[in-house]
């Protein structure tokens, strides 16, 4: 997943733990291969190659697309997985700012309305590329936790680069103490909270960030303007699943400081927002 991953388990035996670890590794590798934004052999790359013609997708992909459709509706179009070309332009790997012409060209292949989605058939507009950032890593964390439970390991945490899915509380029933990353010093925790189950996800401008001439350009791009969002440095959300937490956090990032905070309050999910000056807001502030 291109980020440090960790698995904390409490199991009956080393063999038990290794069994769970192997299952997690295989699952994360499977999802990485299938939905990677970068790999040219991924399903997303193959869908981009087939853009213009309808393709029947598998049930898992269909479920992810349906989930993305709901997020698109909830964010009034700001969360848009069709923005793959745009997000690539603003990726740190480019090392330079995109030109206005490049942005305009990417925008022309972006937009949920340009995609035809009627389960199980998907047709991308020519030139369109999907980006499942904000969903797929979080989904992978939930899947990994589920696999651990299925393997009989009921206490533990899956950590995929700061997105956490709880397998279950410590074996004595106490919750895990988990840290929320500080956006400007990701090695340090901005806050610590206790979590028995569910998921915690953070969306921030510190990952895959393009820095040009001392200015930070978030990889989270508003598909309506084609430019990175400005506002929060990071948003962390706690929810029943890492998937929900990640989706809510990404949506809040996209909505910006004023609307994003209101959105999270209305959802009623515990959250911590940190703006670009390091000011914190949200009901998890006490944990900082």
């Amino acid at each position: 997943m291109g980020c440090p991953c960790a698995l904390h388990l409490e199991a009956d035996s080393v063999a038990h733990a290794e069994h769970a670890l192997a299952a997690v590794r295989a699952e994360v590798a499977r999802l990485e291969a299938k939905y990677s934004h970068y790999r040219e052999d991924s399903l997303l790359a193959r869908l981009a190659d087939a853009a213009g013609t309808p393709v029947a997708v598998d049930a898992e992909t269909a479920n992810l697309l349906d989930f993305a459709a709901t997020l698109h509706a909830q964010s009034d179009g700001r969360f848009d997985i069709t923005a793959g070309r745009l997000t690539r332009l603003w990726d740190a790997q480019n090392g330079r700012l995109p030109t206005a012409e490049e942005i305009a060209r990417a925008l022309a292949t972006t937009g949920w309305h340009r995609l035809e989605w009627r389960r199980p058939r998907l047709r991308l507009a020519p030139g369109m590329r999907l980006d499942l950032g904000g969903i797929v890593k979080e989904y992978a964390a939930d899947r990994a936790a589920e696999l651990c439970r299925a393997a009989g390991v009921v206490a533990g945490v899956v950590d995929l680069g700061g997105d956490l899915a709880l397998i279950g509380p410590h074996r004595d029933g106490t919750p895990w103490r988990v840290g929320i990353k500080a956006p400007r010093a990701p090695e340090r925790a901005a806050a610590r909270i206790e979590l028995p189950r569910g998921g915690l996800a953070t969306s921030g401008d510190y990952e895959r960030t393009l820095i040009v001439a001392g200015r930070r350009y978030s990889h989270i791009v508003d598909p309506r303007t084609g430019r990175p969002v400005a506002g929060f440095a990071s948003v962390s959300v706690v929810a029943d699943s890492c998937l929900i937490a990640g989706a809510a956090a990404t949506l809040a990032m996209l909505l910006g400081v004023a609307e994003g905070g209101a959105y999270l309050r209305e959802l009623g999910l515990p959250h911590l927002c940190i703006d670009d000056r390091g000011r914190m807001s949200g009901d998890l502030v006490f944990a900082a």
Binding site: A69, T70, A73
Partner: peptide
């Protein structure tokens, strides 16, 4: 649930 959510989302659209 997924189907209902998708239909509700479509309507808003």
């Amino acid at each position: 649930k997924r189907e209902i959510a998708a239909l509700i989302a479509q309507g808003r659209h």
